[in-house]
Write a protein that binds this DNA or RNA. Sequence first.
DNA 1: CGTCAGATTGATATTCATCAAGATCGGTGG
DNA 2: CCACCGATCTTGATGAATATCAATCTGACG
Lengths: 242, 242
Amino acid sequence: MSQGVELLRKVLAHRDRLSAEDLVSLNALTFRVENFARGSEIIAEHSRPDASCLIVSGLAARAVFQADGTRQLTALHIAGDFVDLHGFLLKTMDHSVMALTKSSVAFVPHEQLADLTRKSPHLTRLLWLMTVVDAAVQRRMTALIGRYTPLQRLAHLICELYVRLGVVGLVDGQSFGFPIRQAEVADLLGLSLVHTNRTIQDIRATKLVAWADGRITVADFAKLSTLCHFDPTYLSLRPEKR
Amino acid sequence: MSQGVELLRKVLAHRDRLSAEDLVSLNALTFRVENFARGSEIIAEHSRPDASCLIVSGLAARAVFQADGTRQLTALHIAGDFVDLHGFLLKTMDHSVMALTKSSVAFVPHEQLADLTRKSPHLTRLLWLMTVVDAAVQRRMTALIGRYTPLQRLAHLICELYVRLGVVGLVDGQSFGFPIRQAEVADLLGLSLVHTNRTIQDIRATKLVAWADGRITVADFAKLSTLCHFDPTYLSLRPEKR
DNA sequence: CGTCAGATTGATATTCATCAAGATCGGTGG
DNA sequence: CCACCGATCTTGATGAATATCAATCTGACG
C-alpha cells in the first residue's frame, strides 16, 4: 500500500467507517509521487491539471496573487490533505498551490477519480466531503480575518494545526514542526510582516504557546482554544454514516 | 418541472452539457418549498439537517457568529444556489444560513441526494462541482478581506454579484436588486458599519456604480473589474466535460 | 405629529502598515 | 579560524487606515 493511500485511508477513517470494498477501491488508485522544493509551485493558477494531488509530507498552501505581487495564502495544507481534489472538478485552476517546505506530493489521474464516481458512490461521497471540509476551513479563515484580532487569528491557526496534525500523527507530545517564515504567516493571517512578528511575540507572552526553531509547542490547549473561541466542529472529525 | 429544478438546471447547464438522462434524474428530485422572513435563520449552526436547500428567490448568507454577538457573513447566496449541499456531507452544520431578504427556499431530502450519488455519477460530479465553486468563492472572499482595500472589496462584491445574478437572469439591463442594509454589507466585507458607509460613498464617487433604493446599477463593468482585479475564472462558468 | 429603522456625519482613539535600522545566525570563502 | 554575507527576525518611529462613539438626518408609516 502506497504512503499516499495509507494517509488517505487514515484521514477518511476519521470521517466514516471504510468497508472492505472501499479499501479495495482506494488501493486501486495509482499515485505518482513528485518532490517539490520550498517555495515552488505545485499547481499553477489558470493551469488545467489532469491529475489531483495529495500531500504526502511537507506543508503547502493555496495562494491568490495580486497585481502588485502581494499575495494571500488562503489555506494551509498538511500531510494527508487531498489538496487538489478541487482541480478535478474545476478543470481550470482559480488559484495556485505552493510548497511552503520541501514537500512530497502524490498525483492521481483525473480519469481514475472519474472512475471512482462511477464505481464507488460511498468513496465519492467521502472525497466530496473532503472538499466540503476544505470549504468549511476556508469559511473559518474568512471569519478569522474579517472579525478576529490578530492574536486570535494566530491562536486559532495554531489550534487548528494542532488538531489536524494530530489526526495524521504529526503531533509529538504537545509540539509539532512548523518550519514556516513569518512572512508566510503574515500572508496567511492577512497582516503585515511587522505586525505578524509582534503578534507572535504577544502569543509567546501569554505562555500558552512556545514557538522556536520551527517548532510550536502548545502548553495549554484548553486556554488557547478559549482565547480564540476554537470549536473544531468545522473539521467534521466525527465518524458518521456519510 | 418545479421552479427549484428549473433554476438548478440553468445553473448546472453553465458548467456542463446535461444529457436527457441527467434531466430525468434532476426531475426526479422532489423539493419542499418553504418561505423565510428577512433576518430569519434557514439552517442553524450545530443543527443536523436531513435535507439540503436551494434558494429559489431572495438573498441568503452563511454566517459565523462570535461570542460577543458580532458576526462575519462568509458568503452571499442568490437564487439558484444550492446553498446547503454542504450539509449533506457535513452532517453537523459548522455555520448558519440566514435569509437576508424574504426568501423562498426549496429542500430536497438527503436520501434523494445519496440516491443520486449511486445512480447518476455525472450529476453527482456536477453537484460536487457546485460545492467546489462555493469553496472557490470563499477563497476569493478570504483573499479580498485579507489583502484588498475596502473599495476593492466592495467593487469585487458588486462584480461578482453582477456576473452571478446574470447567470440566473436577475440582471435587468445593467442593474440588479440588492435590498441589503449597510450593516450586512459591513459583516460581509469585514468592516465596521461606519467605514462601510464611507466606502459606499467612495464607490459612488467613482461613478462606476450607482446604488440607491436597494438597487445597484453598474455603469462601467470593465472599469469596475479593473479597479478590483476581478477575474471570473473562479466561478467556473465555462461549460466543460466534468 | 411622533416613532423607528437605517443612513450619514464629525470627532476621536486605536490598530495596523510602512519605513528604516539593527540584531542574530548559519553558511561560506579566504 | 575568522570576516563577511544573506536571510530572517526584531525594534522603534511615524503616519495612514479603520474602529468607535455620539449625534444628526431622512423617509416610511401608524
